[in-house]
Design a protein around this nucleic acid. Sequence first.
DNA 1: CGATTCTTTGAAAACAGTCAATCTGTGTGG
DNA 2: CCACACAGATTGACTGTTTTCAAAGAATCG
Lengths: 206, 206
Amino acid sequence: MFDVFENYLNNHGIFDYEDFDLIRSVSFCKKLNKKDYLLREGDICRHKTFVCKGCLRSYRIDKDGTESILNFAIERRWINDDVNFQIGEPSSTIIDALEDSEVIQWSNENFRMLLATIPSFNLFYRKHLEESLNEKQRRIISILSNNAQERYEEFINNFPKLYNRIPLYMIASYLGMSRETLSRARSIPQYTRYHHNRESILGATY
Amino acid sequence: MFDVFENYLNNHGIFDYEDFDLIRSVSFCKKLNKKDYLLREGDICRHKTFVCKGCLRSYRIDKDGTESILNFAIERRWINDDVNFQIGEPSSTIIDALEDSEVIQWSNENFRMLLATIPSFNLFYRKHLEESLNEKQRRIISILSNNAQERYEEFINNFPKLYNRIPLYMIASYLGMSRETLSRARSIPQYTRYHHNRESILGATY
DNA sequence: CGATTCTTTGAAAACAGTCAATCTGTGTGG
DNA sequence: CCACACAGATTGACTGTTTTCAAAGAATCG
């Protein structure tokens, strides 16, 4: 299982055997069956988690009882359990497996040790954080400036290896729309395109 | 100007005189008048930017010509110019000043040098990135699961020092709603107290 | 002042959400 | 192999919210 992570790291920096030995010595591998929880609501324990195989999601239960999916993670991606909310918020993050999965975890303490000890690991992680920030910013922009159908198309393009492995209603939740709206966006893409054309023609007339 | 940043850093880690000397030696201070651009559309130059005084915003022009505000930054906050988009996207990030402002900038190259040289600076910046990630994740959740009134109320609570310094239509843009919708959300009796506060502050102080 | 800029309001249209019923595919047990 | 349950997806009718367009009011600034 660890070789997946070793391969991943080799694609993101230069590491030697000593580095890998140290990293491996504080890694905890975990196997999950589909529907198993990695983190239940209320758990306080915080980890860094890397997905070697399978697919996981993080989500919350809103005040009205509906699920809001924060993120998906397939193989060679990270999944966070560290989204803190204001005091008084009723729910926190939940993580579970959408497929039989394998993950590697590090306690935050050990992860900090690795960052302080291995310069190229530190460098890699900073780049990773900055790229994650950009990814989230792009998602915000997409929600703010695109309609249902555009957001779905963007999702397909951004996650070509993911979109056909998860049920549509989860994609709808991730995109912030009802499953019915996503269903309709998928079924009549021509309508929306036509409609946009009409708007731009109208816009050009004055 | 640099003393604001020195004070900020002292609140986020332990630094000695040598550290500050090194940091100062690669800092570039800039004064901006209201409406000045810090980064125009199409500029390739990337920096890390810290706001010492005033208020800035980053935004994009969408394909239909409307502005989407990504972030605001007041004193003791950072403002990013590094949101990369897919190839073919027509527009990129723009940053301008909403008030007369003072900022400190570092080239990405010098910033990397600081991170590699000063361990506590590296530690501080990583915490900062992780907190920024959480902030963006919270914003995504807020957009996905709250309506117009709730999002406005949350904005007021989250940015008490910011909300009465910028025009409402910019808040609307940041929250992903039309200015008219925000205006109506504010006029609901439940929220008029904010309205009154703002008016009295404006009337008394400015 | 006048000229901007910003905010509010009204009415109509577009859009997404909700509820309920139906359809589809998959896997299980008899 | 069939019948069945079940999870997921779709569709229609209806409701509610937000956007859009247009106009008019405030506030601000030179």
